[in-house]
Amino acid sequence: MIGVKEVEDPKKRVPLIGMIGGMATVGKHLFEKPVTVQYPEQRREMPERFRFRIFLKLDDCVGCTLCEQVCPNGSIKMQPVDRENPRNKRKIYPDVNFGTCTVCRNCQEICPTDAIYLTNVFETSRTRNSFTYSPEELALEEDKVKK
């Protein structure tokens, strides 16, 4: 069902008419609404599936290091955290360097307990030296992180 179609060149026509028509088409857009979103004042509703900020449930994390292994560019490193958790015997939790994170979602996919997950929180601007989010920061509530 895949056929071949010959493409014809546009026909020769009277000069200038098409150009004036094109200018009219461009001019017509003067009366259409702008499509831009004025960001800090207007915020577009981010879809639920939009993914950016990584969160962590400290209670669920079992310290399996799968997320560290699967992270394509080594943004996730396991850090020792002194915290009582019967499921996490080794007491290691992931931290995330958002300077290099590409939001590929592989850590969320691979996590056996769904402890690490991405959300549509995206306003995470920081200064240069604090891109690395410690496990405690990742464990913050979603509402607290939202600005």
Partner: peptide, 16 residues
């Protein structure tokens, strides 16, 4: 192969 579409071809070979 289950879809119905055409492959466009032109004999001119120029920019247009």
């Amino acid at each position: 192969d289950k879809l119905n579409f055409d492959i466009p071809v032109s004999q001119k070979g120029d920019n247009l």
